[in-house]
Every structure is written in structure tokens, then in C-alpha cells.
Design a protein around this nucleic acid. Sequence first.
DNA 1: GATGAATGAGGCTTCATTCAT
DNA 2: TATGAATGAAGCCTCATTCAT
Lengths: 194, 194, 194, 194
Amino acid sequence: MTVLQGKGSEQMSMQSVAQEAGVSVGLIYRYFANKEDVLRSVIVGVLEDIEARVPAAILAAGEDPVDQVAAGFDAYCRVIAENSEAAVITYRESSRLSAENRTLIKDLEMGSVQPLGRATQEAVEAGLFAPVDVDLFAYNLVLLAHGWALKSWYFQPQHTVDSYIRGQLALVLSAALTPDHHIEYSRYLTAKED
Amino acid sequence: MTVLQGKGSEQMSMQSVAQEAGVSVGLIYRYFANKEDVLRSVIVGVLEDIEARVPAAILAAGEDPVDQVAAGFDAYCRVIAENSEAAVITYRESSRLSAENRTLIKDLEMGSVQPLGRATQEAVEAGLFAPVDVDLFAYNLVLLAHGWALKSWYFQPQHTVDSYIRGQLALVLSAALTPDHHIEYSRYLTAKED
Amino acid sequence: MTVLQGKGSEQMSMQSVAQEAGVSVGLIYRYFANKEDVLRSVIVGVLEDIEARVPAAILAAGEDPVDQVAAGFDAYCRVIAENSEAAVITYRESSRLSAENRTLIKDLEMGSVQPLGRATQEAVEAGLFAPVDVDLFAYNLVLLAHGWALKSWYFQPQHTVDSYIRGQLALVLSAALTPDHHIEYSRYLTAKED
Amino acid sequence: MTVLQGKGSEQMSMQSVAQEAGVSVGLIYRYFANKEDVLRSVIVGVLEDIEARVPAAILAAGEDPVDQVAAGFDAYCRVIAENSEAAVITYRESSRLSAENRTLIKDLEMGSVQPLGRATQEAVEAGLFAPVDVDLFAYNLVLLAHGWALKSWYFQPQHTVDSYIRGQLALVLSAALTPDHHIEYSRYLTAKED
DNA sequence: GATGAATGAGGCTTCATTCAT
DNA sequence: TATGAATGAAGCCTCATTCAT
């Protein structure tokens, strides 16, 4: 069942969560053991969404590692954008979780970096990317994706998700691509108007 | 006065803040109107630190815009690293502040991006940087600096602040520098062992 | 109907009572007006059991008042032992009942003392018992019977209901019997092994 | 400190406990970790009172074991009478305690029987008491003492604590004393008017 | 100035009760 | 009849805030 559709918002009191979900407080406790369980569920939900959609996007991008990185980042950003409230909750509330749940979330998040890391690694090995620090590069992709949710107030007026993704891809790919391949992938490097 | 030196930690109740600071609850209320005031003070403190040290570092970096960007980013990261608990609090607690205080913090943070933005702009105009999206580039610097505090659990074992700064500079500068100038600034682009 | 067979246990929430009884919560509310009604029913059930079996045991004991007292106490103890959970509930929950129901239960309990009181009275009048305080003596019998349920943790390892009854009878009858009749009723006064 | 002076009453909600004690809810949590802690403290308080006063009374009773039993029972009853609300709480709420605390209370209660048991034992060995089941006899004394609190509604109109103690002593001592010693201890055996 | 005992509103959670199926 | 999902009032507990000392 999908109590908790439009989770998020600002208030995280069980009363307000219930009200927003349009159910009673008591009903939440039929599906979740306690508040921490609700929180974990929301956060893990986003991470599972990422786990489902980012690898899929990479797979659908074909053989080219650069296309894979671009597609993976694109998908990551879109999941975050579609769940930006939940993404923000991750930063705001995860310190309230038990050590166990925090570990769970860390592990899932670290796992979510890996597909991007693998594509990056392949791009490096194929000579398409300069020999960048693969881990750092991949993690930056994740951080930039989160940035859209964390700093929406900063980007929102001037950017849409599309333009944000395009802009960030232009930056990060030009950081990584060897000069020889800039023209080949110029479709990612030119910031188009939106 | 310097009540609230090493606040931070995890607990943000006034009683635990007092205990950690080694003072009584009552004393905090002599210096701060209420909890929100304490929070704002902590957050604004970090931002003022940035406001003081990042421009100073840029100034000290000399005429070269690329050196300025590097020095500014370096300083930004170090302030965050020295106040990582407060930096995390910004993300965790700012949603609990009044609209007014949130606006104040946003303004300060947007202001903190500007020195980095100006240096970036100059680098572009001097032909040292490719024509990147200056705002986005500058904001990414800030986000990556915050990343050190937000994701310490991810980077900590393998990275020190120094290696983190070096690694990130290598990435972001190779993103921006035109191929012609890679050699000139190769000191930033090679990740050295630490 | 016999919803609520082996209620008891520790949990007294309607949901757990229902689960233990193997029925739905809703069904309980078809047979009982509310929780207090369930409670009263459980408690009254035990008292009615006593009201049915103690006089019957006394009747079956024949003419001898001492045998009647012994038989009555024996029966009282056995009803309590067979319903020890419900007996404990009486002590634990009766303060939650309405004044009206508490009065009802008091009256039933006072009534349950009477057959023991009458037999005691006859024993005194027949010169078998010393002139004890009949009310107190009879009530002690009830209290000692309850003691089996209330303090099972104290008696359980060393005593069975049988040995408990035998031991208590030995004590209370030797308290009451005049010295002249000790031998006549020595069958009650010697604690046998079990 | 003595928050919780006149504990007891009927209501055991923290709100009502606070109100009755004339303090705020919050203050209770400065002295007690949680509700269970309050409960345990009340119950243990009575048991410690017994532990203090019953042995003292026995000691003060002199060398005679029968006097000791009488004095011990007298003291036990008076502690219960002075704390009858707390004594009732023991029966009503101890099932809500953690296993650990229940064990603690059992142990204290079993300990509280011992002084009475020892005096009884001595009386038996001195040939003053018939060879009764010492454990059972001693425990009955405790149960009868509790009886005053548990069944106050039954005894109250006709009995004071004094007359209750006198009446019970007459019963239990005549149960135990060998016929030879009835006259010697007749001061305990005759129920006087009150 | 400095303390920390005291307060009580507000948040989490349980559970008696209802009602649509 | 029988079910069990849904409700929401009430209880436990925390913690921002005050104030007598």
C-alpha cells in the first residue's frame, strides 16, 4: 500500500505526516513500526529508485562509456528532482536514525555510486577520459545531483532540471574528456539555451 | 564572547549544547534570545568566516585568476573542514529557522559564491578558462567544499582535506582550463601522493 | 457463547485479547459493550464459578462442619487455580472499573465468603472450633485461596495446588480446632508428602 | 528529595501523579528515568520500609520467639497500613514492570518474609509452636498483612488496623501454638473489644 | 553575572472503538 | 455474522524557556 505518497514537506512530526498523507496517525503505525521506520522507508525508497533507474539508464545508453556516464548522471538527477523533498530529508534527518539504519543508508548510497564509477572507469580505460580520480569523479556526479535538491533555492529561477543536467554535464565531461575527444562529444559540451 | 565554541556534535537540545559548552542553560539565554538565535549564530558564524577568509585568500593569490580560483576553493574547503559540524548543521537545521533567517543565510551563502565567481569570470575573460557557465562552475566549487563535511563518512578513510582539495582542484580546473593552458597549470592537475 | 476462553496472559489490550481468543476485535464488540464489560465478565465469571462450586462442595461434604470448611476451601482454591489469570486480573484491573461494577464485584466476593462463614459458624457452635472471629477466619480462607494465584511465583516450585491446599488446611484448621478435636481431624492436620 | 510523597491514589498516569504530587510532569523526569522507574521506586520504598522496621520490631521484642512473631507481624501490618496505596500498586502495576524489576521486587519481598520465618522457626524449635510448615506460616503472615490493604473495603467498617492485627494474631498464633502454651500467650489469643 | 530546578506545550505512540465490506 | 482497516483521544516523554537564588 502506498500511504505516504507525497511524503516530504517541511514538517516531519507524525501528526503532520499523517495529515499530509490524508490518513490518521494511527494508520501510519499499521505500516511502520515507528517514526524512524517511516524516515528510513522514505530515504531507502529514493535510493532504491536510484538503484533501479540509474543502471537501467546506463544499460540503455549503449556501448559508449561517455554516453553511459551522461545517461547515468541524467537519470540520477531526475530521480533526485522527482523526489527532492525526500532527498533533502536524507540530509536533514539521517542523523536522527539509529547507527544501524545510518549504515544501511550509507551502504545503499555508496552502492548507487558504483554504476557511475564503472562507466567512468571504462571511459578512462578506453582513452576517452583523461586519467581522472575515478572515485572522486563519480562521487562528484552524485553530489551534483543532490545539489539540485539541496540548493534548489539557488538554481531554481534560472534553471530547469534539464538545463541543470545539461550545464553540469558540460562542466564535468569537459573536465574529464581528453582534448582529442571534445569534438566527438560536443553534443554534451555546448550549453544550449532552454 | 565565545560561549559556543565546539558546539556541533549530534545533540542540538539546549541542555546538551550548554553541557558541551561547559556553561549553564541560563547563560546561553543571556547571550542568545532563543534556540533559533543560537542556530543562526552558528550558521552565520561559518558564513562570516568564509566571507573573511575566502576573499583574503584570493587577494593573497596574486593576479592570476586561476591561482585565485584555486586559492579561493582551498580556503573555502578549509573553513568547512574546520567547522564541519556547523556546516552539517546548516543543512540539518536551516529548515527549522524562520523564513527571515533562512533568507539571511541564503543571501550570505550566495554572497560567499561571488568571490569565486569573479575569479572564474576573470579566468574566462583572460582566455585561461573555456567559456564555462560561470555561476554553475562557482557554485559547484561551493558544493564540493560542502561535500567534504556532508560526506565525510564517504571520503574520510582515503582522503585528508589536503588530498581532497588537491583531487577536486585537479578535476574542476581540468574541466575549465582550455587545453592550451593545461601545461601552464599542471601543478594543479597532477594528483600527487600525500 | 464462549469467546474469551483462555484470555488471561499479560496483555489486556482488546487487540491482543482478540488475537489470543482467535477472533477479530469486531466480534468481541458484538458480545461485549466495551472493554470494561469484558473485564467485568471475566471477573464475574470466576466469582460465579466460585458461587457454583464452593456451596456444592460444602453440600457434598456431608453434615460435619469441619469437613465442610475443608471442602469449601478446597473448592475455592481449585477454582482460583484453574482461573489464576482471571483471579490476578481481578486485583490488577478492578480499580479501572466503574464504581458500579466495583460494587457488583465486591458484593459477589462478599457473597462468596458466606458459605465458608456459615460452615465455620456451625463448627464453632458445635464446639469443634474454638470461638474464633468467624468473619475474619472465613475471609482468611478466601485470601489464602487468592494467595495461590497472587503469589504463584513464590509457591510454585515447591508446591502444587494439592500440597498448597493441604498445607494451608493444616494451618488454618489447627488454628481453629479446639485441642480436643485435633485427633479426630488429624487427617487435615498432617502435611503429607506429594 | 521527596517528590512523590503521597503517591498512590487510583490514577497512575504521569499527569495525575504529577498533579497529586503538586509538581510538573517534567520535574518527575528529573528524578526518575521513566514511569517504570517511578513505579519501582514506590514499590521498593515500601519493601525497604518493611526491611527496616520488621527486623527492628523483632529485635525490640526480646528473646521470646512468639513475641517476636507477634511484633514482626504487627510491624509488617503497620507499614502496609501506612502505605496501603503503594501496597495496592504493587499488586496492580508490578505486571507492567520489566522482568528485571519484577525479579528485584520478588527478591525483596521474599527477603521480607525471612525475619518472620526465622522467628517462627525458633518458636518451633523451642517447642512453643507445633511443627508447622514454617515457610507457609511465615508467608501467610505477609499475605494477611497485605490483606489489610488489598481488602480494606471488606474490613474497613468493622476493623481498625489495631483490631485487625489483634484478630489475625489470635488466629494465626492459636494455629501454631501448642496447646500447652495457649495460656502463657493468652494475651495474644483473646480478641478484645476496640 | 551565573546557575540549574522547574514548567508545560508539543511530539511520539498505543489502543479502545467504529464501520465499511 | 465476522472481519480488520481506520480513527483519534490519551498517555509517556522531551526539551525550549523561565526565574528564584
